[in-house]
Design a protein around this nucleic acid. Sequence first.
DNA 1: CTGAAAGCGCTAACAT
DNA 2: ATGTTAGCGCTTTCAG
Lengths: 343, 343
Amino acid sequence: MYHSTVMVTIYDIAKITGYSAPTVSKALNNQSDIGQKTKEKILQVAKDLGYVPNSSAKGLVTRKSWLIGLIYEEDDMGVGIEHPLFASIINAFKQDMEATGYELIFIARNLGGRRMSLLEHCRYRHVDGVLIVNSDAKDTEVLEVTQSDVPCISSNIVFPDISTVTSENIRPSVEAVQYLYSLGHRSIAHIAGPQNSIAAAGYERLEGYKAGLISRKLPLRDELIVVADFWNGQSGYKAMMELWKRDEKPTAIFCASDIMAMGVMNACRDLGLSIPQDISIISFDDNLWASFAHPPLTTFRQDRQAIGKKAAEMMKQLLSGEKVPPRVLVPVQLIERDSCRKI
Amino acid sequence: MYHSTVMVTIYDIAKITGYSAPTVSKALNNQSDIGQKTKEKILQVAKDLGYVPNSSAKGLVTRKSWLIGLIYEEDDMGVGIEHPLFASIINAFKQDMEATGYELIFIARNLGGRRMSLLEHCRYRHVDGVLIVNSDAKDTEVLEVTQSDVPCISSNIVFPDISTVTSENIRPSVEAVQYLYSLGHRSIAHIAGPQNSIAAAGYERLEGYKAGLISRKLPLRDELIVVADFWNGQSGYKAMMELWKRDEKPTAIFCASDIMAMGVMNACRDLGLSIPQDISIISFDDNLWASFAHPPLTTFRQDRQAIGKKAAEMMKQLLSGEKVPPRVLVPVQLIERDSCRKI
DNA sequence: CTGAAAGCGCTAACAT
DNA sequence: ATGTTAGCGCTTTCAG
């Protein structure tokens, strides 16, 4: 049955049922101090009338918006417009939060032509909390939000004052080196992500790589490390070309991301290096392409679903006043395919 | 300067400036019937106090929320969790709408445990309009929204009652065939997307393929068409394998999407077919991977940015009461790379 | 050009 | 268990 477009209020329900507005309100909100019969009758009439509450009126008096703000800056990472991680994380987060009654709203940076800071926007909409996804850690407006009293959770980017959830970076990076070591490799290079502190991933994976070498008593050599300019394929290609100009020719490479690995693998091809015969490659992410690469890429799978769910869990804790640890790590899983060989 | 967390209202400003609340309101909203001096003074005090309007109070009286609802169903297409198109479209749409003063909110399907239909949610939040991105065209709750008085624009999926913006599908598909024809190909196959009507892309590209054949007086042959089960790599692989079981061996394939093409190209490899020596491939999308494929893939680039911008433009027209055409097409661009050869 | 009064839809605090 | 009163912050008449 389709309802008319004119708004029906609790007063309409009150009039029809003969009860007062507050009583209707109580019934609708499932309060305790109300008769069972009364409640049923009111609920029935509300249903018949197609009553829908008014979030503005409700929010105005309760001061709770049931809104979670999303600060999502498109792509400072140079990946282009298709970053594969964030959409999934947001989606998992969304589903979890919605189940608890929250809706997600993108926080804008201006309001009807007039500029308005992110924090002002949060206040304007009275968001109950904010999820920061891949924003610039140095953006003053974002920092203003993280330093305010608005409950914030961050995914991917580490901010000083708030809790962050990311995939594990260090442990799997150590493991990557050890995995290659166990295959007999002794000269292992790292093509690292940008070290500009936007994302923890860049330096933490490099750190893990170094720790991995140390754990196997392999020497740390600068000439085996190339830092890519951006998290994209072109930069991966360029980094591989740079690596191969140097004297030491590694037998294996730990690459900081699959997208970069696309470029690295192309560079190998252009260099006449076949994978894994001439060189082994292990990477990070497990994106759509990894299993279709030639050869299929051995890589650590980031669990986007788990990251989003974890972020939601942390948000709910924060919202209910609980303490949340500053950094939460979600495990990744090694997906062994054919890009590494025993030597 | 950092402001306190207690809310400052127009009454605070009124008290300090000595004007009344309505006057303050007028100044803040840049109304005409107010003195220049007065306005300046009020604005200054508002700024000093860190005044931020309250969207609930505002919305309650104006009945305008400055909210655009987003109906975004994750992935009925079987692409997995990384569909590369939608995030970009949403982002472009978002930027344009924000510049006009609107914010985007995801429309949920339940509210704090209680179920609430999509339309009810739209009413609850008083959204001024709704953008539907890749939702199931048969979902009754979505249809309820499209058939309501809520202004709706759809991207990608064609709904009966509302305006839809997509990339051009038919013309480029015709062109794909003609392009291959001009290269000397006469036996041209099509690996089509799912024909289940979720997305127009599936059947429109098939339609364009057929029209292309006809335009060059090539025979339509069913054995040169394989319809994939899903828009993913596995389905592409399977479809190619199926195609090659048949008697007629085409010299070229028009594949309905890049992601499917990943699978098709892998199947070629497994079949011992080298591209483009043995078979030419042309595709659709130009995703991140296409330029890194072996060989780099010739494909039609969808302009996600333009689609999002167009959707925003249509939404604004709708919001201001203008008529919007039922279907708007955004041009795609042929990116010639190395997967097709002259024979 | 400015202000007084009223009201948007809802709920909190109390009284009955 | 139910109703009365009041008020959330803002804007819209309409009077002056």
